[in-house]
Amino acid sequence: MGNYLTSRITAEKHVHVKTLKNSKGRPDVKFHDLPEDVLCAILSKLPVKEAVRTSVLSTDWRCTWTACPRLSFGVNDVCKNVKMKHQHTQMFIDRVNAVLGKHCGRVVDQLEIKFIFESKLVDHLNNWIRFAMSTHAKNLAFDLAPPSNLLKYGDHYRFPFELLDNKSISCLACLQLSFVCFKPPPADFIGFPNLRKLDLHVVKTTRQDLESILCSCITLEWLSIVRCHLKDEMKVVLQPLSQLQYLKIMHCEVTKIEFDAANLSTFVYDGPYIPITLHHATKLENAKFWFRGAVFQRAATSLLNGLPDVQNLTLQLGMQRLEVFYIGTIFELWFSM
């Protein structure tokens, strides 16, 4: 997740830029002559706090930075001279609130928050989600994971499904969540009808809650689940993910993986050896596995039975690696150490 404001340049209509020439006969274009979209593109290369500072350049620049539709906040937006943790957190909260306040009533396509979670942030995180929903944001990313020693940080942030109204949630196309907790959604929760990308990292949930959420993502095309310890099966078969093309499951404590994804083309798995079945995955082109604690013959046989249509298979057991490339009914094997 980058620490930048980003603008999407539109080309719906031609914008005329003054083309006066200087003494050398070259176009003399001043910075303030540029179209707003071009100015926003330039500001998008700056961290949030630097982009905000451009508001003091002139009256014309006072609100230019607020036209950027993609907002991203991280630890770099806080002064490095602040030593106390509570002051560091409060400065981050104040900066985010100040920027979002300036964007009220404006279009915001993306909101990203990258900051180590603590209980003090809960109400503010909820308010920031309310803001994103009110602007009908298409992309929402909350990366709240600490850099290391995850266990000592205690509770995760509970993702507030109840704040997602039907109209706003229909606009959401990409959701990235790290160090959050899923509790059962409210009974009237309609799911994520237009979500295309879902990235879950260090998410605390149960098999039932995760299955319920995934089954509601009927248009999902890209799914990554990393370090989400269910200690149970991971199954999505009651409601097939017919649009899913990419699936990655890594470092998760699960006992079995079973998906129904007819358009799946890439599957990546890293973890202990477990049964894996991908139903109707006739378009599966690439599958990569890193198994730990598995016997080669057992793992290879199980995969070939569970993935009968895979074209390119990479299997790694400890230090031994096997690659299988299928060409029609012929396949070749490569071993490497």
Rank of each mutant, 00 (worst) to 15 (best):
N3I: 09
Y4M: 15
L5K: 03
S7C: 14
T10L: 14
E12V: 12
E12L: 07
K13H: 11
T19K: 13
L20Y: 02
K21G: 03
S23W: 00
V29D: 06
V29Y: 01
K30W: 01
P35I: 13
S44N: 05
V48T: 14
V48Q: 06
K49L: 02
A51T: 07
R53M: 10
R53N: 04
D60N: 14
C68Y: 01
R70G: 15
N76R: 04
V78M: 08
T89A: 09
D94I: 15
G105Q: 13
G105K: 13
R106M: 07
V108K: 09
K114F: 04
K114R: 11
I129T: 01
F131V: 15
A132W: 00
A132E: 05
A137V: 06
A137D: 01
N139V: 08
F142G: 10
F142M: 10
A145C: 08
A145W: 03
A145D: 03
L150Y: 05
R158C: 05
F159V: 01
S168N: 00
L175W: 08
F182Q: 10
P185A: 14
I190M: 05
I190S: 02
R196F: 08
R196A: 12
H201E: 05
V202F: 11
Q208R: 12
L210S: 08
L214Q: 04
C215E: 14
S216L: 10
C217K: 15
T219N: 07
S224K: 03
S224T: 12
I225H: 04
H229F: 08
L230V: 07
K231V: 06
V236S: 11
V236F: 09
L238G: 11
S242Q: 12
Q245C: 15
L247E: 01
I249S: 00
M250E: 09
T255M: 11
I257E: 07
L264T: 08
S265Q: 04
V268F: 14
P272I: 13
P275W: 09
L278I: 14
N286A: 04
K288I: 01
G293C: 10
A294F: 06
A294P: 06
A294D: 11
L307A: 07
L313I: 00
L315G: 05
L315W: 12
Q316S: 01
Q316P: 00
G318Q: 05
Q320C: 13
L322I: 12
F325R: 08
T329I: 01
F331T: 09
F335H: 07
F335L: 13
M337N: 01
